[in-house]
Amino acid sequence: MADLEQPGHAQPGHAQPDSAHHRPTVMTSGATFGVSPSQTVGPFLHLALGDPDEALVVPVGTVGGIWVRGTVTDGNGDPVPDAVVETWQTCTGDAAVPAGFVGFGRCPTDEDGRWAIHTVKPGPVPAAGRRRAAPHLAVSVFARGLLDRVVTRIYFADEAEANAADPVLAELVEPARRPTLVATATEDGYHLAMRLQGEDETVFFAL
């Protein structure tokens, strides 16, 4: 196997790569390539992942626009100033889909661990098993000290009925921890405190 594990080349586990072209071969069956491991973003993520425009999933002024704000804190309760939060949503709920909507938002945390994205609230989301999930954002948090991103969701407190029937929130998350995934209403949108570790630790998911 040693010769199948040269650096730099994607290598299938059970088949000879197309070494003549230094290219991985498309496999037919049974063989898989080992996945590239994750590494931390480190403290200087802003160089590439810190474009302030990316916090605007929809332009400010969009009908139905909301600010989803949050904080990221560590196990001591201290703010995490070198994290980046990414949100993803496919749908826009009751709002018309604005031109250029891609559904992706990204915001690095500031010195106080705060982040914010401007978006529209999503509608119900198709879930596994032909079920329907309550409106939510899919969320990744990257930070110095996180060797892999942590994956979570942001639900909305004013969707109590949908939240109570959500196949993940209501069935896979223990009741005491559910509030860590539910953003509360604010004057211009919603707010959620995320805690990476410790008491009231945010629920993180394995994908």
Partner: peptide, 16 residues
């Protein structure tokens, strides 16, 4: 101080 201490909750993937 940053790694979550609780086990990750397995997530059946939805559309997102």
């Amino acid at each position: 101080g940053r790694a979550p201490s609780r086990p990750l909750v397995p997530l059946p993937p939805g559309l997102h």
